[in-house]
Design a binder for these strands. Sequence first.
DNA 1: CGGAGCTTTGAACAACTTCAATTATCGTGG
DNA 2: CCACGATAATTGAAGTTGTTCAAAGCTCCG
Lengths: 245, 245
Amino acid sequence: MRSPQLHPRTFASLACSGCKLREICLPVGIGDEEIEPVDLRLVAVRRQVRRGESLLRTGESFGSVFAVWAGFFKTRSRTAEQREHVSGFQMGGELMGLDGIGSGRYEADAVALENSVVCEIPFSGLELLAHEVVPLQQQLHRMLSREIAHKQRVMKLLGGRPAEERVAAFLLDLAQRLAARGYSATAMVLRMSRREMGSFLGLTLETVSRTLSRLQANGLLSVRRRQIRIVDAAGLQRLLRGSAE
Amino acid sequence: MRSPQLHPRTFASLACSGCKLREICLPVGIGDEEIEPVDLRLVAVRRQVRRGESLLRTGESFGSVFAVWAGFFKTRSRTAEQREHVSGFQMGGELMGLDGIGSGRYEADAVALENSVVCEIPFSGLELLAHEVVPLQQQLHRMLSREIAHKQRVMKLLGGRPAEERVAAFLLDLAQRLAARGYSATAMVLRMSRREMGSFLGLTLETVSRTLSRLQANGLLSVRRRQIRIVDAAGLQRLLRGSAE
DNA sequence: CGGAGCTTTGAACAACTTCAATTATCGTGG
DNA sequence: CCACGATAATTGAAGTTGTTCAAAGCTCCG
């Protein structure tokens, strides 16, 4: 991989420098003068994952983290009774597998919710590269930290907020992440089922469905199966800012 | 800080090399031959925090992470209605403030639940040092990752496990962390109130109290206010492994 | 000894779950 | 192209778990 000319297609397709996600994913903050080693060594392979397929499996030995390049994933584990628990949803530029660094084993499955493409980033290589390219090290730390902060916010939500707030917060979070990637901040097509959404939010699928219906009845959303339109974003936000005001 | 001889007490007291937590905290994996720069540059100051005092405040500009050297902390934020939500409890060798790296602001308060001592680790210095001392970089990544994995497990707990399981899991987790630090794995004195425990677990203080009473009645625990003794660890574990078996 | 705060326990209530039935959607094959 | 079957979503009714409100007991500390 030293000479791109010898592997033109591979190089071109794996290069972070020209990637549409360069300002969202791991290369954030890396200038053009430092991007070359990243282009050459960060991504080992880019891989297709078809809808329904598992990219990662709980308990497997940790080796790489994966960046979503296109598509949409859920990460999930199983409860003692073999019921699924969804721990997160990932879209373009987000990393999967970070939970495996500490224990040496992945702590969740990563399942594609639509046909997707991921960039495989061998972690030992990433650490080496981060060692040489300081902005890469910093962005890695930021991404790890944001994952912690995000899960912390979700914990707060799960710890005793009513269903309506959970669903509202979830949709606003999703909309914001989509907007950061150039999609509409108001119209979206959910990639997950009501059950998956409920599992993530600590609710049953019936409660999710009822809650969406109620939010629609109140004029905050327009819901048509998985097609969601945010009609009154400020109103949703107000739900979170505390109905007690 | 270049010449330890000039600041003998400071140097001795701040040195990671002789710290009882060396095998739990950030210096895990650093050999004696590499520990010197860490001794000299990792910890800026060691600081007392009295019971009830805040070390970190939500929204403050991020600069340092803090390792608990002695004592016990809670991290918390406030809901829209100004109610407290506890996002975690930290003991010796655990880091606080990691949630601030990504956003540049701390995302939670850190409040001492007993008189405590922390090591302040300026983060830009840590990144520089991690750049030079590879095992430090690796341990930082492991600690960030474990924080993610831990919160992921808590999310799973909050997402629809009954109160009994939440409390059992909480006590087992606490016991295990205490045991790793040389304390008894069966007898402990809780540092947090029922309300704080409940806030963390997404339960009211009354439910926590009732649940502890029930676990005691079932012969799994002995509860005397904040003095908890784990009577039947295997039985508690069995609660988590699914009553559906 | 007194009082504040924490914990325990009881009883009524509410939110969400569970169980159940109906409807809508999508993919597939006749 | 339409019908069929499977899957997902919606909606209703009953049931549970945990919450809320309330009161009383216990500890610790001044």
